[in-house]
Design a protein around this nucleic acid. Structure first.
Ligand SMILES: [Mn+2]
Ligand SMILES: [Mn+2]
Ligand SMILES: [Zn+2]
Ligand SMILES: [Zn+2]
Lengths: 136, 136
DNA sequence: TTTGTAAATGCGGCTTAGTTGCATTAAATT
DNA sequence: AATTTAATGCAACTAAGCCGCATTTACAAA
């Protein structure tokens, strides 16, 4: 059993298949978030789209990636930092460019005030505008 | 030309049809946000679902209602306050209950810090948790 | 190395939100 | 009442995402 395999089992992924490796590689190489639609397109020669959905599900359960809705209601995924299968600790806002559609995770604290008579458990914050590249 | 009609034309709606009146009435009676899926169900005996979509589009252009994505990626609509067809001034966060799914507009200012090298034009903020009714 | 196992995958079909084109209806103006 | 065209109904379509089931394959035990 190779080291990378021990690590994957620890994270909840049982078998390191070619498909698992291919999806993992995308998130290792690319810090920006990826839409499922884009991932399916990227991987269409290597695996079935159902497999993409299922691997993303497993990765999210394992705290390898996290997901959120982009501005058009599509599902996006990005790498987690410091999460595992028990705790998703990596809550942060996201930014989506209105020109190129690129999505970034933001290391940014946003203060959420109390809402009277409500218990807030989580937040979903999407900032929209122009990214660094599109601003020029 | 009746007064209500003058008002509607002013807002961009050209003809006050029975369908327009029916959708309008829902938003006048109910302050909470409504999902399109729920509206279609509510109105299924009175009009075609395509008509619901088209009336919501027109209302949004006219500043009568605004839309946003709920936690499950569905489209939700709620009444605007102080908007018209030229200016949607009514930006605010939303709350969705994780138990009963109810969605509320929040009159709440949330401070958005600057993001380096980005131009932020709009925000989409969804708070999730337990509503007043579900907390007890 | 071979074999047994169940995790993972492929595939086809299905669900559902939302859109589009076009023929028909009806609201408002004359 | 006649005219105009905004609005509607309808059917077909698109696209994201899910599900069941047969098949494959990773991996551990023999
Ligand atoms: Mn993120
Ligand atoms: Mn609102
Ligand atoms: Zn951009
Ligand atoms: Zn509730």
């Amino acid at each position: 059993m190779r080291l990378s395999c021990i690590k994957l089992v620890f994270m909840g992924i049982i078998r390191k298949t070619k498909s698992v490796a291919a999806v993992l590689q995308i998130f290792e190489e690319q810090e920006d978030a990826q839409s499922v639609v884009h991932l399916i397109e990227l991987l269409k020669d290597e695996m079935n789209r159902t497999t993409v959905y299922r691997i993303l599900d497993r990765f999210e359960k394992d705290g390898i990636i996290h997901s959120f809705n982009g501005k058009d209601g599509l599902r996006w995924y990005a790498k987690c930092h410091g999460c595992d299968s028990n705790h998703h600790v990596d809550a942060h806002p996201h930014f989506q460019c209105t020109e190129c559609d690129k999505v970034e995770c933001l290391s940014l604290e946003i203060e959420i005030p109390q809402v009277k008579n409500h218990k807030i458990d989580s937040t979903d914050i999407l900032l929209m505008g122009q990214c660094e590249a599109c601003r020029h």
